[in-house]
Simulated scan of single mutants.
Amino acid sequence: MPKTKAKEKMVLISVHIPKQMLEELDEFVKQGVFPSRSEAIRIAIRDLLYRENSRNKNQNVEDLILLPGR
Results as ranks from 00 to 15, higher is better:
I13D: 04
L25C: 07
M21F: 15
R51Y: 10
T4G: 11
A40K: 02
D26K: 04
I65P: 00
L25R: 02
K30C: 06
S38Q: 12
L66A: 14
K9N: 15
K3R: 10
Q20G: 07
H16M: 07
A6T: 09
A6D: 07
P68H: 08
A40G: 03
I17A: 12
I13G: 01
D47A: 13
L67Q: 15
Y50I: 14
I43M: 06
D26C: 03
K7H: 12
L67G: 03
E8H: 05
K19F: 02
L64G: 04
L25Q: 00
A44H: 03
K3W: 03
A6W: 05
K19R: 07
R46Y: 10
G69M: 10
P2K: 13
A44C: 14
I17H: 01
E52C: 06
I13Q: 04
V29G: 01
A6N: 12
N53D: 15
V15H: 03
L49I: 13
F28E: 07
N56F: 14
L49P: 02
R55M: 14
K3G: 02
E24W: 09
H16L: 13
P18T: 05
N58W: 11
P2G: 04
K3F: 04
L64Q: 15
T4I: 12
N58V: 08
N58K: 15
E27T: 13
Y50M: 13
H16P: 00
L25Y: 02
R70Q: 09
L66F: 06
I13F: 08
Q59S: 13
L49H: 08
R46P: 01
V33I: 12
N60H: 10
A6V: 11
R55P: 00
I41T: 04
K19Q: 07
R42I: 02
E24S: 08
K30P: 04
R55W: 07
S38T: 09
V11P: 00
G69C: 11
E52L: 14
K19T: 06
E39M: 09
L22R: 07
A6S: 07
V29Y: 01
A40I: 00
Q20H: 14
P2C: 05
M21P: 02
D47Q: 13
R51I: 08
L64F: 14
L48P: 00
F28N: 10
M21Y: 12
D26L: 08
R55T: 08
I13S: 01
V11H: 11
L48A: 14
A6Y: 09
R70C: 06
L67I: 13
M1S: 15
E27I: 03
E39K: 04
L12A: 05
E52N: 11
V61M: 14
I65Q: 07
V11Y: 10
H16N: 04
Q20R: 11
D26S: 03
N56M: 15
G69S: 15
R51V: 11
I13C: 01
K9L: 08
D47T: 13
F34K: 01
D26H: 02
E23L: 05
V11C: 03
R37Q: 10
N56P: 01
R70L: 10
A44F: 10
I65D: 02
H16K: 14
I45P: 01
P68R: 06
M10C: 09
P35W: 05
K19H: 05
R55V: 05
F34W: 00
K57D: 13
G32Y: 02
E24G: 11
I17K: 05
F28P: 01
D63S: 11
V15P: 00
E62F: 04
V33H: 07
K3H: 08
R37M: 03
P2I: 06
